[in-house]
Amino acid sequence: EALDLGTCKAKKKNGEPCTQTVNLRDCEYCQYHVQAQYKKLSAKR
């Protein structure tokens, strides 16, 4: 099993862990959760 392949560390809205696979060398979170957090933070400017 590849060491750099894993699952997203974020949690879904219902509290369950996200099940998307990610490349851990790039980021610990999937694209969906990265974009969601970016939108959330950019709205606070």
Rank of each mutant, 00 (worst) to 15 (best):
A10F: 06
K40C: 08
Q31L: 04
K40Q: 15
L5S: 10
D4I: 11
L5W: 00
K13H: 04
Y32D: 14
G6H: 11
E28S: 10
E16W: 02
N14S: 15
L24V: 10
T19V: 08
K11W: 07
A10Q: 01
K40Y: 04
V22H: 05
Y29T: 11
S42Y: 04
S42V: 10
Y32N: 05
K40V: 09
Y38P: 14
K12V: 10
N23P: 05
K11E: 10
V22S: 05
K13V: 06
E16H: 03
T19N: 10
E28P: 15
N23C: 11
K12A: 09
G15P: 00
T21R: 12
C18D: 02
L24P: 08
K13D: 15
V22E: 06
S42L: 06
G15S: 00
E28F: 04
Q20S: 11
E1K: 15
T7K: 15
C18L: 03
L41N: 11
L24K: 11
N23K: 10
C27S: 13
C30W: 00
Y32R: 08
A10I: 03
K11Y: 04
C30S: 02
Q31W: 03
K11F: 06
D4G: 02
N23E: 13
Q20L: 11
P17F: 05
L3R: 11
K13L: 07
P17W: 02
V22W: 02
A43K: 05
A10G: 11
K13I: 13
A43W: 00
Y29K: 08
T19G: 13
K12I: 06
L5E: 10
A10N: 01
K39D: 15
A36I: 07
N14E: 03
Q20T: 14
Y38A: 14
L5R: 12
K40P: 05
V34M: 14
Q20E: 14
T7L: 09
E28I: 04
Q20A: 14
C18S: 01
C27M: 11
G15M: 04
Q31F: 02
Y29M: 08
S42P: 15
K12T: 10
L41T: 15
A36Q: 03
G15Q: 15
A2D: 13
Y29R: 06
V22D: 05
Q20G: 12
N23M: 14
K39R: 07
T7Q: 06
H33F: 00
Q31M: 04
G15R: 00
Q37A: 10
T21P: 13
Q37D: 15
C18M: 00
S42R: 08
Q20R: 10
T21F: 02
D26N: 14
L24I: 07
T21V: 11
R25P: 12
C27P: 04
D26E: 09
K13F: 06
A2P: 07
H33S: 01
L5C: 09
